[in-house]
Design a protein around this nucleic acid. Sequence first.
DNA 1: TTGTATGCGTTATCAA
DNA 2: TTGATAACGCATACAA
Lengths: 352, 352
Amino acid sequence: MVMSPAVRANMSDVAVRAGVSPATVSRALRGHASVSAGTRERVLRAAADLRYVVSPAASGLSTGRTGTVGVVAPLLTRWYYAGIVAAAGQVLRDHGLDVLLHGLGDAAGRARFFERMPLSRRVDAILFLSIGLSPAETDLLRGMHVPLVFVGAEIPGCWSVRIDDVGGAAKAVSHLINLGHRDIGLISSTVGDGFAFSAPIDRRRGRERAMRSAGIAWPNHLNAAVPWGIDGGAAAMAELLSAQPHPTAVFAESDEFAFGALRTLRRAGVRVPADVSVIGFDDHEMADLLDLTTVAQPMQELGQWAARLLVEALDRPGKAPRSLVLPTRLVVRATTGPPRPERPSRVSRGHR
Amino acid sequence: MVMSPAVRANMSDVAVRAGVSPATVSRALRGHASVSAGTRERVLRAAADLRYVVSPAASGLSTGRTGTVGVVAPLLTRWYYAGIVAAAGQVLRDHGLDVLLHGLGDAAGRARFFERMPLSRRVDAILFLSIGLSPAETDLLRGMHVPLVFVGAEIPGCWSVRIDDVGGAAKAVSHLINLGHRDIGLISSTVGDGFAFSAPIDRRRGRERAMRSAGIAWPNHLNAAVPWGIDGGAAAMAELLSAQPHPTAVFAESDEFAFGALRTLRRAGVRVPADVSVIGFDDHEMADLLDLTTVAQPMQELGQWAARLLVEALDRPGKAPRSLVLPTRLVVRATTGPPRPERPSRVSRGHR
DNA sequence: TTGTATGCGTTATCAA
DNA sequence: TTGATAACGCATACAA
């Protein structure tokens, strides 16, 4: 007879009902080999009858393991982070791990995180999304003695998975160069907001690499650094448009920047790509809608791989951390094209 | 002297260092009134010296409280859910509560959730986002004996916060009617995917209410039901365009649908709003970029209020659950306008 | 294969 | 105001 007990059943209750000791219940429930089939069956039935669920607190107290992993992200509202969290969470849950989510919010929230270490003793491992660490912070985290996995950052001695930001950015800019562009603007995000993102720096470097290897100069007035977001991109594009002559193509460090840039161009009556080409980075879910050419990064796989690395770290405590680099992919849509031929380039194209 | 101990300090270690009993340490750390100032200070210093952190497992085992709340959402990747999770998480953390995140994924994941009840014993309360419940499921959840808070659904005997979907939809459609539209199409999501969303139904009802009170018929062929997403919206718009005569305005049940609809219209060379007006629902972060007229719902406040209700439920165990309804707001941008005057309406406008 | 006994780190009850 | 002690529920070493 199945009952809905007034108070939660514990392991002893199950033991009594199954006619065995609590220890046997524990073993049976955890699939221990040394339990006879008949006993196991009786235990399982008794547990089901009583709607018994193991107490994670008691179990954790005894084993030292929590069965949960922390996931720390700068912002949960960003499409990109949410996607990674979702993908990682799926894999983690498949391995019986719970996800304790922690959104940093802003620089103050970030500081608070490292001050109070709210994940201390609560998780078996931590996944960090796009969070660069100072040496002091690294030490603090190491002091937790749990595996650390980073997405989008590489910390010595830690597990990590990221994309090749430099290569991806170079790919984007090379695409523009191959189309014939020489005056190529850059929209990148201002740094120093408390987060130490490597992506802005790497993507800028990728652009430089592509420009240099094509023998093209990149004057400073074609670089616009703005706060992250659509509005930032819009402002940056306005700034670039006022340059004389203005760039014939723009590489936006993220699709959000590109979206803002497109808005400015549309409102200014500048045709895309006839007058100005725009390429982004990320392959945001809205990029297809806006026909934006961009460099896709495998968001899902980043999350999945991060989770897999974490599980590996948990399974083999001694193992040396691995670092993965996932490929990016150029997605050509309708916002890039050759520059108008009649417009002379401001940089000579000959040998130098 | 501050040391980085090889192994974690526990409460007894702190007690020894402070020269008091573990019980006193416990009281001091938790701000109990019955601890002298001097003792408290010594305990705090000892704890800091040893980098002591309370073990949530042990504490939870003793108190029965976990200090964490579960947040269950259909999908984490949807802008709307991510926004609510972020807002709620902020408030919860301010109250010292951790967030255990659980994304359902699909119908199978939803079923699994109710089968295994993975949050059982792990959380002090649960926040459900846009998840309707069957009576059986409601019973199952009640069996957990923790407060349940719902966003976007109203379950008898549970806490909840939602917007007035009917009123919001009516507001949207009335806006179109006031502009002079009579043939108003509807893009809504197919239901029956395992989730019991009330929003689609309510928003459809709101549209009916507005149409009826204006004395306008709403023929079935102006209703398009499609799977959720941009592509669904695009397909729905194509379907509506093929109607004879096609609607002069379309109410999309969500902004994502509207985005897809706009894409179809753009590619078909139909001018917006000159030929067809489009209004959405949500005020997605991209709505401004696309100049979409829409009905804004206060995503942040939904999350914040949900968290506050949850804290209230935790603070006053006996208290009767409250249900909040937050207002929506019409945001007029550039995708709605009056219908072309030369085009005769298919429903007479005179008195009836 | 199963049972007994102990410890995990904390809080709460009671006594001092 | 403080201390001793008994739960809390489980896992595991050891014994049978």
